[in-house]
């Protein structure tokens, strides 16, 4: 039996609902909230701030991302709080997808800390984290070329889909492919592309070529969030 209808009733080319907010944590230098469907993240940015000597780079500032899932965030069991192998990997992946747009050359020996807390995780958490982190970094006044936007693409059974939910990732009657993608909207540079599951070259190209309108939509939500912060 083929995958006919999505579990949450969306069209195959429809993203989940987006919600974005900037400046949600008063004590942070920059902060943001981002939600896609049932996945949401709070991000706090601190810095640029000084670092121990062995850690810092005298030619430019460095970016550090810390990813953490809240104990209650998962769909099933309690998530063990603290650093796990997956958290370290995701922190590093998110860091690398943001570094290409960030310009820290004026901040030698300093570091910018990005703390990502996932409140709810229903698949696509790294995309949501990247979207939120972009807003928070801009809110902190960090110089950057553009905001990075991210969304997952993939395939459930024989259908190409956008923005998979957890139910879809757990689909067991056929192949499931999850392909998170982060893009710099103005130039179309891809800063993150991961894939788990089998896809043909044609399918990958087809999915990537479809990405632009979705990225643009997310990007507009991010900009609006930043501007709304200053509305009185």
């Amino acid at each position: 039996m083929a995958y006919e209808k999505r579990f949450d009733g969306r069209r195959f080319d429809e993203m989940r609902k987006i919600e974005a907010k900037a400046g949600v944590i008063p004590n942070a230098d920059g902060s943001a909230f981002f939600r896609m469907g049932k996945t949401s993240a709070y991000v706090a940015v601190y810095g640029p701030k000084s670092m121990p000597r062995f850690f810092s780079d005298p030619t430019k500032g460095i970016l550090k991302c810390y990813y953490e899932m809240m104990p209650f965030s998962g769909a099933g069991d309690r998530v063990k709080p603290g650093i796990s192998r997956r958290a370290i990997e995701l922190g590093s992946v998110i860091e690398r997808s943001l570094i290409p747009v960030i310009d820290l050359h004026n901040y030698p020996n300093l570091a910018v800390d990005v703390f990502i807390h996932m409140l709810e995780t229903d698949a696509g958490s790294r995309c949501v984290a990247i979207n939120a982190a972009s807003i928070a970094l801009a809110d902190a006044g960090i110089p950057m070329r553009d905001l990075v936007s991210a969304v997952a693409f993939g395939k459930v059974d024989d259908k190409l889909v956008v923005d998979l939910s957890y139910e879809e990732e757990a689909y067991d009657k056929g192949d499931v492919v999850d392909m998170p993608l982060a893009m710099v909207p103005s130039t179309g540079e891809i800063t993150l592309l991961q894939m788990d599951g089998p896809l043909t070259t044609d399918e990958i190209i087809k999915l990537i070529s479809k990405a632009k309108p979705y990225i643009k939509k997310i990007n507009e939500a991010q900009r609006l969030a930043l501007k709304n912060k200053f509305k009185v």
Binding site: A138, P143, D146, P185, R223
Partner: peptide, 8 residues
């Protein structure tokens, strides 16, 4: 006018 990074 308020602008965000990346706006032309």
């Amino acid at each position: 006018e308020i602008v965000t990074p990346g706006e032309i």
